[in-house]
C-alpha cells in the first residue's frame, strides 16, 4: 500500500518517545527541594523536641535525610532504623505524591543540651546544610526556626487551654478558660516579622495583629471566661509551628505569659511543584 504510512508510524513512535523522555528529564530535580518552615519552641532543661522538615524528591531516585547541620549544630532524624539508601519504594510513606516527585517529611530532633543559646536566651537559623543517605548534600534556605531557653516562671496557668482543633486548610482554633480575672495586653511570637502578614488571628472574634507595640485594649476578662483563639494561615506551602504567647496582667497585678501554638502542615499542588522545579533549575 503506502510505504509513507509506515514511515509516519515509525517516526511518530520515535518522536513521541524522545519528546516524552526529554520532558521527563526536564522535570527531574537535581537536588531535593525543601519547603519553607517557620518553627519556634521553648526548651526546658533536658528537653528534646522534633520538627518535621518537608522536601520534594524525585520518584525515580528518592532520598532520605541522614543529618542536618544548622549553625554548626548537627541534628538527626528520629527514625534512625534503616538509614541506608532507599532501595524499595515501599519504604517510603510520602506526605503527597506528584507526577515526578514525592513530598517527604523527616522529623529532625533537637535537644536542649546541643543548642547554643545566645545571651538573650534564643537561638535561630534560616539556612541549613542537609546531608542525604546517598552522599548528596545541599545548603538551603529553610525558612526560620527559633528556639528559646525557657528560664522564667511565667505564671502561665493564668489561662487554661483545653481544646484545640486544626485542619489542613491552615485554619485552627484553641479554646481555654481564664483561671482568674485578667486582661490580655498583647500577643507575641518569636517569629513576628515572618508571621504577621500571613496569619489572621482572632481572640473571641476580635482581630488581633502580631506586633510588639500594639496593645489589645478590650480583652478584659473575668474568672472562668472563655477565650477562643482562631487563626487562619494564608501561605499553605509553608510549614508552621509557632508558639503564641498571650501576655497580660491579672486583676491582682501579676503579669502572665501563657503559651499556646499555631500550626499548619504544608499542602502544595502540582502547579506549585512545577514552579518550584523551575526555580530550582535557575539556581
Amino acid at each position: 500500500m503506502k510505504k509513507g504510512l509506515l514511515w509516519i508510524g515509525i517516526i511518530g513512535i520515535i518522536i513521541s518517545n524522545i519528546g516524552n523522555y526529554l520532558y521527563y528529564q526536564s522535570q527531574q530535580l537535581e537536588h531535593p527541594i525543601f519547603l519553607k518552615h517557620f518553627y519556634s519552641h521553648s526548651f526546658y532543661q533536658n528537653d528534646e523536641y522534633s520538627f518535621p522538615f518537608f522536601y520534594l524528591t524525585n520518584k525515580a531516585n528518592p532520598k532520605k535525610i541522614k543529618y542536618i547541620v544548622a549553625d554548626n549544630v548537627a541534628a538527626y532524624p528520629n527514625n534512625q532504623t534503616t538509614q541506608d539508601l532507599v532501595s524499595n519504594t515501599s519504604d517510603i510513606h510520602p506526605v503527597d505524591e506528584y507526577n515526578h516527585q514525592y513530598l517527604l517529611s523527616d522529623y529532625i530532633s533537637f535537644s536542649y543540651d546541643s543548642i547554643p543559646f545566645d545571651e538573650d536566651g534564643t537561638w535561630s537559623f534560616q539556612e541549613i546544610s542537609v546531608y542525604f543517605t546517598d552522599g548528596d548534600y545541599i545548603t538551603t534556605d529553610i525558612g526560620k526556626v527559633v528556639f528559646k531557653d525557657k528560664m522564667e516562671n511565667d505564671n502561665s496557668e493564668a489561662i487554661d487551654f483545653t481544646i484545640s482543633e486544626s485542619n489542613s486548610d491552615g485554619l485552627g482554633k484553641f479554646k481555654g478558660y481564664t483561671t482568674e480575672s485578667l486582661q490580655i495586653e498583647k500577643i507575641e511570637t518569636l517569629l513576628d516579622e515572618k508571621l504577621k502578614n500571613d496569619i489572621d488571628l482572632r481572640i473571641n472574634g476580635q482581630k488581633v495583629s502580631l506586633s510588639n507595640n500594639e496593645e489589645i485594649g478590650s480583652a478584659n476578662l473575668k474568672e472562668d471566661d472563655l477565650i477562643e483563639i482562631q487563626w487562619k494561615i494564608d501561605s499553605l506551602s509553608n510549614a508552621f509551628e509557632v508558639e503564641l504567647y498571650l501576655i497580660g496582667t491579672t486583676e491582682t497585678g501579676k503579669p502572665f505569659v501563657t503559651p499556646t501554638f499555631v500550626s499548619s502542615q504544608p499542602t502544595i499542588d502540582q502547579k506549585k511543584v512545577n514552579e518550584l522545579i523551575k526555580e530550582g533549575d535557575k539556581q
Binding site: N20, Y21, Y24
Partner: peptide
C-alpha cells in the same frame, strides 16, 4: 496498524 501505532506513541506518555 493504527492501533499498534497509537499504542506505541501513547505508551511513552506514561512517563509523564
Amino acid at each position: 496498524f493504527i492501533v499498534w501505532l497509537i499504542i506505541g506513541t501513547t505508551q511513552s506518555f506514561v512517563w509523564n
